[in-house]
Simulated assay, not measured.
Amino acid sequence: MTTLLIVESNTPAMVTAGQAGAFGFVRAFAGFAPEVRIRLTAPYAAALQPEELRGVDGVIFSGSGVPWGVDTAEAKPLRDAMEIVFAEGLPVWGSCNGMQLGAVVLGGTVGDCPNGTEIGTARNIALTSPGTAHPMLSGRAAGYAVPCIHFHEVQSLGSDTVLLAGNDHTPIQAIACASGSVDFWGTQYHPELALADIGAYLRGGTFGDAPGLIDNLEVGDTDATAAAALGTSLPELANRTLELQNWLAHVRATRAALG
């Protein structure tokens, strides 16, 4: 039995208000791997303790809607948590804020998106040469589009971190690092979220009035016309969790190799 620990990267107040980054992962794994056991931890509520990693096969750092960057003093609880996890040598996944966090802990930098918020879908994503060979992106073809929303982005990578994919808006869309005890995969986009999740978030007013975009997001998972308007398609959306499925296979292979 595979056990995953999800690190909730929103604050307790945000989670209470219904903004929990862990929810998308719980639902995604319930859809394609319902046998997986899920545990939760929340460093903004209480510091991660090493004993929480006992019996855990892989760790996920969720996205987050906090206004601060992962390199700030406010984000220290998350950085501390990731350092503990990396020291244990466990496979780690990071989505959006989670990928940015991994990049910073591994020596990279983040900042505001120079091209503004990337919202709805990340479109026309191209694979780098390492990306075409990396198991995270097995099954992906150049030009894919996936749900996303972010106003910060990774702007440089540490020396051991590899760029796997990017697009014109955000050149660093997928990364990986395998160095020492570190086993990290991450995407700037959200393979765990449906378009409707992004639409519901926007409907709350966080990013202002975007009625046409919101309308398409709310029906785009099942409406081919709306999906096309967002730069994607129903078959592509049906495959949106591909990276997570690939990561889970990696987690299980890593566990098997350890005996």
Rank of each mutant, 00 (worst) to 15 (best):
T170P: 02
E218F: 06
P147W: 07
G199V: 00
A75L: 11
I119H: 06
R123C: 10
P147Q: 07
Y201M: 13
E218L: 15
L4Y: 10
K76Q: 15
G55R: 01
V15Q: 09
G212F: 12
L106P: 05
Q188D: 06
P114N: 06
F86T: 10
A13C: 02
V66P: 12
I6M: 11
L5D: 09
N239Y: 10
D197W: 09
T241N: 12
L230S: 03
S159R: 11
D71I: 03
A133P: 08
I119A: 12
P77C: 06
A126G: 10
V182S: 01
G58Y: 07
W185K: 01
H169C: 09
L193D: 04
A122P: 02
L242M: 11
E243S: 06
A145M: 07
L217N: 04
P50E: 03
G180L: 05
S179F: 06
T11L: 06
L217A: 10
A45G: 11
G55N: 05
Y44D: 04
P34G: 12
N246I: 11
A196N: 01
E192V: 06
R54N: 13
A81S: 11
P130I: 15
E35S: 12
G212Q: 12
A28V: 03
T232K: 11
A210L: 15
G63N: 07
A253L: 05
R203M: 14
R123W: 11
Q49F: 03
A47V: 00
G204M: 12
G107P: 03
A46G: 10
L5I: 00
Y144H: 15
I175F: 08
L127Q: 09
L40Y: 13
F25C: 05
Q100H: 14
N239W: 08
S138G: 13
F86Q: 13
S181F: 05
P91R: 00
A178E: 12
A249L: 02
A122H: 03
P91G: 02
V251W: 04
T72S: 15
G186Q: 02
N239P: 04
A46E: 15
W68C: 12
R240N: 07
M14C: 07
V92I: 14
L230C: 00
E192T: 03
A226I: 05
P130Q: 07
R252P: 02
L101R: 09
G131H: 13
V104S: 09
P211T: 04
A253M: 13
T206G: 14
